[in-house]
Amino acid sequence: MTDALKRLSDEGVAIWLDDLSRERITSGGLAELIDQLHVVGVTTNPSIFQKAISQGEGYEQQLTDLAARRVSVEEALRMITTADVRDAADILRPVYEATGGRDGRVSIEVDPRLAHHTRPTVAEARQLAWLVDRPNTLIKIPASLAGLPAITETIATGISVNVTLIFSLERYRQVMDAYLTGLERADAKGLDISRIHSVASFFVSRVDSEIDKRLDALGTEEAAALRGKAALANARLAYQAYEEVIASDRWKALEAKNANVQRPLWASTGVKDPAYPDTLYVTELVAPHTVNTMPEPTLDATADHGKITGDTVRGTYEQARADLDAIEALGISYDEVVRLLEDEGVEKFEKSWTDLLTSTEAELKRLAPKEA
C-alpha cells in the first residue's frame, strides 16, 4: 500500500502530515504514519488546532489545571498548542537526526491576528521557539507584507521558519529574498547558518477554487477548458522561480557557507472539487527538494491509488505560463485573485483562532474551581 508514497519520497518529495491532535499523539497514530506511510514532518495551523481542541479528547486535565491557575485564555491556548507541538517534535526527533535537520519538523504558527504587524510577529516567533524548546520546530509566519521583514529578522536570529499563505509568484520571490537576507544577516552576526532551515508554503487548491468559480461564471467552452489548470500552473512556475534563485550567485555564496536551501512546500493539497482526481496536487507536483504537506485523506488516497510517474514539474513551465496567460486573456485578473486569497487566508485563520479562544475560554470557566 505504501509503494506510491515510497516512490514519492524517492523522487525527492518530503511527505508531511497537515494535521495534529493530542489523540493522534497519545494513541500512537502519528508514530504509525511515520513508520508505515513515510511521513517525515507535521504542519499545524489555527484551523487544525481549533478542530483538535474543540472536538478532540485528551485536553481535559490540562484545561482543568490551567483553570485552577486562572491563567488568561491566550496563555492557556499557547500552553495547550505548544505541548502538542513539543510532543510531536519528540516523536519526530529520530527523523530529524537521520536527515541532518532537513525533515522531522513540526510547524506552529504565530497568532494570526499579528499578520499585519511586524514587531509583534517577531516577538511571538521568539516566544514560541522558547516555549516549544525543540530544535526541530519551525515557526510559521504568514507571507503578508508585514510578514516579510519579520521573516528576515526571525531567520537572522537563528530561528527556523515555515513561511505560510503564499499564493502569488511575486510574493514568493519576495519570500525567498527575505530568507536570503535573513541568512546573510545571521552570517554577519557569526551565527552558524547551517543550523537554520526554512520552507515556503505555496498554497495550491484554493487557487483552483477561486479561478474555477470565475471560469464557470463565464460559461464558455474556452473557459471550461481551463478549469483545474490554474493551481498547477501557478505552483509549477513557483518552482521555476525557486530554480532561478538557487542558480544565483547570491545563493551560491550562502551555500558555500553550508546554508540550507528554502524548500518549496505544496500546501492546501486536499482536492476540493470532486470532479478532479483526489491525488491531483500530489502526483502533478513531483519535483526534487520539495515538501508536500497532506491532510490524512489525501495521504491515504496517494498511498492507495496514487500514480507517481517521476518529475511532473520541470519541463512544464512554458505550458504553465500559457495556461495562466489564457486565463488572464478571459478577463480574470491573476493579481486580483491572489490578493483576495491572501486576505481571505489571513481572515480564515483569524476566525479559527478567535473561535478557539472563545471555546477555550468557555472551558476554562466551566472547569474553574468554585470560590470558597
Rank of each mutant, 00 (worst) to 15 (best):
E221F: 14
N260A: 11
D216G: 08
Y242H: 12
A223F: 01
L215T: 00
A256C: 06
Y239F: 11
E255H: 12
N258H: 15
D249F: 04
A247H: 03
L237Q: 05
E255Y: 05
Y242K: 03
A247M: 00
K229Q: 14
W251A: 06
L254H: 06
E243L: 14
E243R: 15
Q240A: 14
E243N: 12
K257M: 09
L226M: 11
A241H: 02
N258M: 09
L254D: 07
R236I: 01
Q262R: 13
A233W: 05
D216L: 13
L226K: 03
A225E: 14
K257I: 04
V261R: 15
Y239Q: 02
K252W: 03
S248C: 10
Q240E: 14
K213Y: 06
R214G: 04
L232H: 01
S248L: 11
S248E: 06
K257W: 03
A241S: 10
N260R: 15
L237Y: 00
E255S: 13
Y239N: 07
K257N: 09
V245E: 08
A259R: 12
E243I: 08
A233N: 02
R250H: 10
L237I: 07
E244S: 10
A233M: 03
W251M: 08
L237C: 06
L254W: 07
A231K: 08
Y239I: 04
A256T: 09
Q240N: 05
D216H: 12
N234F: 01
W251T: 02
N260W: 11
R236T: 02
G219D: 06
P264Y: 09
A238Y: 00
K252H: 11
A217M: 12
Q262E: 13
D249Y: 04
A233P: 02
T220C: 03
S248K: 11
A241M: 00
R263H: 14
N234S: 13
A230I: 02
E243H: 08
G228F: 02
A235H: 01
E243Y: 00
K213R: 15
P264G: 12
L218I: 11
A253V: 10
N234H: 07
E255K: 13
A224N: 13
L215V: 01
L218Q: 15
E244M: 06
E221D: 15
L237G: 04
N234A: 09
D216I: 10
Q240L: 14
A259S: 10
A230K: 02
L232S: 01
G219R: 05
E255W: 06
K252Q: 15
I246E: 12
K257H: 09
A233D: 00
A235W: 01
A223G: 03
L215I: 02
P264S: 10
K257P: 04
A231H: 10
A253S: 11
A224T: 13
E243K: 12
A223S: 04
R263K: 13
E221K: 15
K229P: 04
Y242Q: 05
R227V: 01
S248F: 12
R227L: 01
K213S: 14
D216W: 08
R250V: 09
R263D: 08
R263F: 14
V245N: 00
L226W: 04
V261W: 10
A256V: 12
A233Q: 02
L215F: 02
A256D: 07
G219W: 02
A256I: 11
P264L: 15
A230N: 03
Y242F: 14
A247T: 04
A230C: 09
L232F: 06
A233C: 03
S248T: 09
N260V: 12
A235N: 04
L226Q: 07
A238D: 00
V261A: 12
K213C: 03
